[in-house]
Amino acid sequence: MRIRIHHTTQYSYDRPITSAVQVLRLTPRPNDAQHIARWRVETDIDGRLKAGEDSLGNLIHTLYIDGPVQRLRLMVSGEVETADTGGVLVGAVERFAPHVFLRDTPLTLPDESLRDYARQVAGATTDRLQLLHDLLGAVHRDMTFCTDATEAGSSAADAFAQRRGVCQDLAHIFIAAARFLGVPARYVSGHLVRDDGAIEQEAAHAWAEAHVEGLGWVGFDPANGDCPSERHVRVAAALDYLGAAPVRGSRFGGGREEMEVFLSVAAEHNWRNQ
């Protein structure tokens, strides 16, 4: 599937900022399921973007801005040719052995109730792939997708307690449970072509990957209840949302900040509508 993405993040400040630094994880790396036909990251102000990669192999840009700046736009646009690999990740850059992704982080540390849930879902299942599919189905079924129950800093345990959250929360819950059951798991940020044909989206997508011997890393998208397909574009992977976050920034000055995201993800047959 040929997918076009336009992703603009706009920051406005009460007062001009004097300087800012941002670490951006906005650029996908190719793998067997995605060929990057073109990709650009730009800003509308006079800043410097330094390209690099983080220790996990994600492509990053560090953006340095000298003020005064009162409005700032990060603009990402690109085109990706995707293929369906049944959710199995092939040809991606791997810097660490899978068992590194067994470690907990504050966002993915399960509490007692989430551990109980993981145990219940696992039951007596010994086949790892089956177990992960059961977990995928369970998280998709038991969690209600809801944008106002949680925030970016909410942990898996927070969201699970409410049984509500966004794709980020569902991915964290899946990861926390998988790790608790001894399966290496990680967080993936990316984009999704919606199957209802809607092109404009409120936020980028997120799902999880878990490691299965013999297969390698396999994607699980608990917000959709299925494995990633040719509708998914994989951008960054890490231990949790924080490690894969599209933007982490810090600024001097500026007062109150307002952020707006404009995102459109369109498959080829919909390009004329984009």
Partner: peptide, 18 residues
């Protein structure tokens, strides 16, 4: 043993290869 290092939060992934 691997897991003693890799599962330890004091092993900073950010330092690998730096």
């Amino acid at each position: 043993p691997h897991d003693l290092i890799f599962s330890n939060p004091q092993y900073r992934l950010e330092m690998a290869g730096l």
